[in-house]
Design a protein around this nucleic acid. Structure first.
Lengths: 220, 220
DNA sequence: GTCTATATAACGATAGAC
DNA sequence: GTCTATCGTTATATAGAC
């Protein structure tokens, strides 16, 4: 229960004004039930991921979703609340990292990099992560989600195998490595990085992770 | 002549409409000459660095500079052009990196990290770099300046000492390391990273740079 | 639930007096 | 060079009909 979902400043305890599912059905999903709410959220992630928070208007999200602008406000209240819902590190990420960390110690760093990239390469998970990364520099809530990814997911996956001095700092630097990789690969697109294969990147960055997990010398 | 200054889409060849120094003086700076233009630029860097491009209004920049809003447009035309002027990797950065790279091979990675941090820690250079880094995720021009820093400055400083396979990728990954470090230290503020000393960070990341400069094995 | 119409506010930018 | 006043646009958000 660490945080598949984000950590917004307001946890929005019940949302009494938002008509979630208006009526519950014992036998599962009502046939022909409304999917508009999810369509709007998907469209929001798509737009936020592509252009960032400020450059994305509610009108554009509505247009992308194929609905009216007023509906966006009807379901999510404000643009900011919709944004908080769009921020997310997908559940698959903690799962993938935990699975990579569970295996043998040899090649652990490489597997971590591959797991990180596998989730990022997944088209269905991309928009939410892209939204988070792109907005982290300008939006506190997005930065908070990114921090949670680092000190939550990564720390949880690697906390058991890491030992020695400055373990906290070294975990943070592993997170820095992965976040920096996503930044230059998917956002800034720094020349050979976007074109490199996951295997190449794992070959280059796996040893870096391993170095943080198991430093050679305190001083040289 | 690589790029102390940025690489904006329009190089603004002569700026015929902008009254740079209205009249030249043979004996140097005219006493009591106008410093308003620089005040505005400094204020813009301060605001852009703190809140990003979109969240910064021209009105706010003017207020920070202690001048009228119309003056900002008078000197820089549009907000976008002012932003392009605010984007900059300070001259000191290429100098510092080149100096670090010139020394002995032992401890090279550590010296690179220290040089990078030394410039970032300088209060006078910070706003321009912060503006660049903060806006890189949402503004093409800022991302371009960041790419130039990587493929220009870093490549120029380390291109001679790096050899072997995938040299381009490995240089880009060194840039990724430094940019990622600035991201988690100054922007996202990922927990122990902002509090760590430059020496601690150099001790942890120096070997990473060295690993990219001189990889141990193609495959393990 | 969905749409039309609109209230309200802030923005970038300009014109023109001094 | 500096300021006052304002134009035109666009944004979020809401009220209310259907």
């Amino acid at each position: 229960m660490t945080f598949p979902r984000s950590t917004p400043p307001e946890p929005q305890p019940h949302l009494p004004e938002t008509p979630h599912p208006p009526q519950r059905h014992p036998g599962g999903r009502r046939p022909g039930e409304n999917r508009t709410r999810e369509q709007i959220l998907d469209a929001a992630r798509e737009c936020f991921a592509e252009r960032g928070y400020d450059a994305t208007s509610v009108r554009r999200i509505a247009e992308t979703a194929g609905v009216d602008q007023a509906l966006v406000h009807h379901f999510y209240g404000t643009k900011e609340k919709l944004f908080l819902n769009a921020l997310e590190i997908p559940m698959r990420m903690p799962e993938a990292l935990a699975e990579a960390a569970a295996g043998d110690r040899a090649g652990l760093g490489s597997r971590i990099v591959l797991a990180h990239l596998r989730v990022w390469e997944d088209a269905s998970a991309r928009p939410a992560m892209m939204t988070t990364l792109r907005s982290a520099a300008t939006h506190r809530s997005a930065a908070a989600v990114l921090r949670d990814y680092a000190t939550g997911t990564i720390r949880e996956a690697l906390g058991k195998v890491i030992t020695g001095e400055d373990a906290e700092l070294r975990i943070a630097l592993i997170a820095t490595t992965l976040i920096g990789l996503s930044l230059t690969r998917y956002l800034v697109r720094l020349d050979p990085v976007p074109e490199a294969s996951p295997q190449e990147l794992a070959a280059r960055l796996g040893p870096v992770i391993d170095l943080h997990l198991d430093p050679a010398d305190p001083a040289a």
